[in-house]
Each structure stands twice: as C-alpha cells, then as structure tokens.
C-alpha cells in the first residue's frame, strides 16, 4: 500500500527536494501534501488523513515544536507519526522533540537513504501496532 505523506517546511525548495528524494528512493509514496508551517499543516489535517508527517522546526506562524505539541494533544491526530527534519543537530533538541511526541528525527544535511530508512522504521513501528 502506498503511504500518504505530508511535508511541512517553510522553504518550497526544501519541500520539493524532500518530495523528489522520496520519489527517487523507492519509498512507497502515494499522495504527497505540502504545508508551509504548522498552522497550515493543522488546517490540512483537519480535512485530509495522512500516514506520516515530515516537519521542519524553524518556520514562521507556527514552528515545528508547537506543531508537534498540537498534534500530540489532538485526540484524532495524535496517532499520526511525525518525523522531524532539521538542521538542529543537538542531542538536547532531538530528545526534546521526541519527548513532545515526534517518532523520528533526521538531521540536515541527510543522505536520501537516511530519510527513507527513518520513514520505514517509523511506519514499521506504527503499523505493527495496528
């Protein structure tokens, strides 16, 4: 089955890079939605179901940290696994995002395989539970 993905990043260039990497990596991707910040992502998620979310941290309007907190607090959305994709490489930050509810973390710059492996790891975990 193909996975529906939501890419949340304020940079359109980064969103299209991530999307292209996923297409080329052999990851089984179906529909790919995009949002420019956490608020846009929440608006989209109120209408569309997705299997996994990839989110940046530094974004205007609603950053990745608030977005992950909002998802975790929402009854109908908290089961959607979130992977953080960020230039912030500090272990502090990784721990913090995981504690807030993120299921994975990929540090930029990343090799295409790293992103795919993290997605498969996170989705494997999520789907084994169902």
């Amino acid at each position: 089955m193909a996975f529906t993905v939501l890419i949340v990043d304020d940079s359109p260039a980064m969103r299209s890079f991530v999307k292209r990497v996923l297409e080329l990596s052999g990851f089984d991707m179906g529909v790919c939605h995009e949002a420019g910040n956490g608020q846009e992502a929440l608006d989209l998620l109120s209408k569309e179901w997705v299997d996994v979310v990839l989110t940046d941290i530094n974004m205007p309007v609603m950053n990745g940290q608030e977005f992950v907190q909002n998802l975790a607090a929402d009854e109908s959305l908290h089961a959607i696994p979130v992977i953080v994709v960020s230039t912030d490489r500090t272990e502090d930050r990784v721990r913090q995002m995981i504690a807030l509810g993120a299921k994975g973390y990929v540090k930029k710059p990343f090799q295409p395989e790293e992103l795919r492996e993290e997605l498969e790891k996170v989705l494997g975990v999520a789907y084994a539970g169902n």
Partner: peptide, 27 residues
Amino acid sequence: EVTCELTNMFCGSVLSRIEAGARFELM
C-alpha cells in the same frame, strides 16, 4: 530560496562543529 537553504545548513553544520552540544536558534 536554495541559497537560503544552503546558508541554513552550512550555519547549522559550522556551529555544531564549533560548539558541539551547544544550543543555537537559527533565524
């Protein structure tokens, strides 16, 4: 846009090498 993204990644990489483990907020 791509040059901005490049700046973001260079900066994150440089700061993490200068001050490993230190917390930075990139604007």
